[in-house]
């Protein structure tokens, strides 16, 4: 597949443009990488379902020309479970954010990893609740300022990938929007994975979070994605870090655990005696 073949507009609902993302927001790059991966895998958008929650990340589904569901805050994985289990003919992708996925929806992430039902979950991590004005999130870097941490954030950063790996996700990976082709390749791997695949996409909120913390312009923020996600200079002033100071990217873990839908169909449906349902 040649790169030149790829035009993201073939996969987007152009009548929904101009999009509502802020200038410099990294979410658009993530969306591009996603449809690029779909293009390379030659997947049909008719046979896919995209489920998103609430927040900036949640709005992305509206731009994908497919079966798209913008559901309640924190619950996209729960909705996707109902779709993926009953419709194995559809490839299900969840698009969520750090607040949607790790705070209000944290429980669903843990159990989706444990169950290992086939779907791909993209968590766009911009470190804040951008939609509501940039409040602190579970992934806000220590000591940074937000409207709800006026003295700097004293909570340690949540390592979503470590959580997903520990909870048993079939595949876990992380990539930065700076390296769009690498992100595309990682999403491609995830879409082909048999089981629950979790990708943390390091994105940026330049307009709100960037300004508030004087992190520079959008290109400057993107360029520093790998170097200063957790600057060494911060040391361990707040707490024992939840993730290493050096940001690991690429596929971080993979396993061959049974896929939930297949296990259900293989064990539960096959073993149930046909009919005789209500008689004893």
């Amino acid at each position: 597949m040649k790169v030149q073949d790829f035009d993201p507009r073939d996969y987007l609902r152009l009548n929904q443009f101009p999009h509502f993302l802020c200038p410099g927001c990294g979410h658009g790059i993530a969306l591009r990488a996603l449809v690029w991966a779909i293009h390379e895998l030659e997947l049909s958008l008719d046979k896919m379902a995209f489920v998103s929650g609430i927040g900036c990340s949640g709005r992305l589904t509206a731009y994908i020309d497919s079966n798209t569901f913008h559901v309640t805050h924190g619950r996209p994985i729960a909705f996707a479970t109902g779709i993926a289990l009953t419709r194995p003919d559809l490839k299900v992708v969840v698009i969520t954010g750090d607040g949607d996925c790790l705070a209000i929806g944290g429980n669903h992430l843990i159990h989706a990893c444990r169950r290992n039902l086939e779907m791909t979950c993209l968590m766009l991590n911009n470190e804040v609740y951008g939609m509501t004005g940039g409040q602190v999130s579970p992934t806000t870097t220590e000591l940074r300022f937000t409207p709800t941490t006026p003295e700097g954030n004293i909570e340690p950063v949540f390592d979503a990938c470590e959580l997903a790996r520990s909870a048993g996700a079939g595949m876990v990976g992380r990539e930065v929007t700076l390296q769009t082709p690498a992100l595309k390749n990682l999403i491609r791997e995830a879409l082909q994975h048999k089981g629950f695949s979790f990708i943390e996409v390091i994105s940026d909120c330049t307009e709100i979070y960037g300004r508030k913390n004087d992190l520079g312009s959008s290109p400057e923020m993107i360029l520093s994605q790998k170097s200063s996600i957790r600057p060494d200079s911060y040391g361990n002033v707040v707490d024992v870090p939840f993730r290493p100071n050096f940001l690991q990217t690429g596929i971080l873990s993979e396993n061959e655990r049974p896929e939930y839908g297949e296990a259900y169909r293989g064990r539960i449906l096959k073993q149930a005696p046909a009919e005789q349902s209500s008689s004893k």
Binding site: F69, A80, R87
Partner: peptide, 20 residues
Amino acid sequence: IQMEDELASMGAILGASMGG
């Protein structure tokens, strides 16, 4: 499917119903 909580059960049945 026994879900992890009540919120998830409600979400899952809506996902299934949207799927038909």
